[in-house]
């Protein structure tokens, strides 16, 4: 929905050759993210999928600078945020990029009232003139996420899981960010609640035009919410393109196995379905040797020239 309106404008977030390594000991380094490049346009949802350990959460955390990237460039809203940032860039980043975490039980301070949790960003960045204004801002944001103003004086434990995740979303939204990183933000919720939260996120996007980096391992939800998708495995971005491109013409064998593994809620078909198997060790692929190849449109696949010939 947003490809056409944003085709001329510059991307909101651009990640180029991001590497994130963690030195475990002098001899051993975990290469969590290797040479990942992608971009997100304003008002767009980019879905990052991959199994656990593929580095999707690490990418999110590197972008919001909870980690210092080992190398690579991250441009956000016209600023370079990959190296040392001056005070203004840092403040801009902290206001315009927000995060929603996976576990709504763990990410809210149990000893703070919901009003204080939500208003923490407002407090730090001095976004109100009076206490009355602060209360109003909190009430307004609570209303937006489908809670009521009375909820402001409660503590997190008085809410159900879905409501807590709404508080998490409210906390991210209150700063009017341009980009929200949603890190597995629905995985911990029940299915009927998942749908409520996904719909809420879509409604808010339509209203405010913010962009999402939606990190998940559940491909069917990612398909629903994303405009474009990136598939990660072992720290490498293997395939990226629009949702349509990825789902109708998956090229990389890993993407194919991922898509084939989505359960189909149709008992007769599902009983006879066998998921494609994919094992990096036996596949004979070398992710490090591959480069990104353009398949068509915005559809890129990582592989060597020989690999690509076999797949296409």
């Amino acid at each position: 929905m947003s490809q056409n309106k944003n085709s001329e404008t510059a991307p909101l977030l651009e990640v180029k050759g991001l590497r994130q390594h963690f030195a475990v000991s002098r001899k051993f380094t975990v290469k969590a993210v290797e040479d990942v490049s992608f971009y997100i346009n304003p008002g767009e949802t980019y879905g990052l999928v991959g199994e656990s350990g593929s580095g999707k959460t690490t990418i999110g955390r590197s972008i919001i600078r909870l980690y210092d990237p080992t190398s690579g460039e991250i441009h956000f809203d016209g600023n370079d945020i990959s190296g040392r940032m001056d005070k203004k860039t840092k403040d801009d980043l902290r206001v315009n990029m927000q995060m929603i975490f996976q576990d709504p039980m763990a990410c809210l301070n149990p000893r703070q009232k919901v009003a204080d949790i939500i208003a923490q960003g407002l407090d730090i960045h001095h976004r109100y003139q009076s206490q009355k204004e602060r209360t109003e801002m909190v009430a307004e944001i609570l209303h937006k996420v489908g809670l009521s103003a009375e909820h402001a004086n409660r503590y997190p434990h008085q809410f159900s899981g879905g409501q807590r995740q709404r508080v998490g979303i409210a906390r991210a939204l209150v700063m009017n960010p341009k980009l929200i990183i949603a890190d597995e933000c629905i995985s911990a919720l029940d299915m009927s609640i998942q749908a409520q939260v996904v719909n809420l996120m879509k409604d808010i996007q339509d209203e405010t035009g913010l962009a999402y980096l939606f990190i998940a391992h559940d491909l069917s939800m990612v398909k629903y919410i994303s405009d474009r998708i990136g598939v990660l495995h072992l720290g490498h971005l293997l395939e990226t393109g629009t949702t349509e491109e990825i789902f109708s013409h998956p090229v990389h064998p890993y993407t194919r196995s991922l898509i084939s593994a989505i359960p189909n809620p149709n008992p007769v078909l599902e009983k006879s379905r066998v998921a494609l198997q994919y094992d990096y060790k036996t596949s004979g692929l070398d992710y490090d040797a591959g480069t990104l190849h353009l398949i068509g449109g915005t559809h890129y696949v990582r592989g060597t020239d020989a690999d690509l010939e076999r797949w296409v």
């Binding site: 009927s192 749908a195 789902f247």
Partner: peptide
Amino acid sequence: WGLLSAMPDLGTNDERLYTIPGS
């Protein structure tokens, strides 16, 4: 009905997911 409708469906391109209201 609600449970079945709330599942994301790969076969359609609906903009919204069905939700069971309330908790």
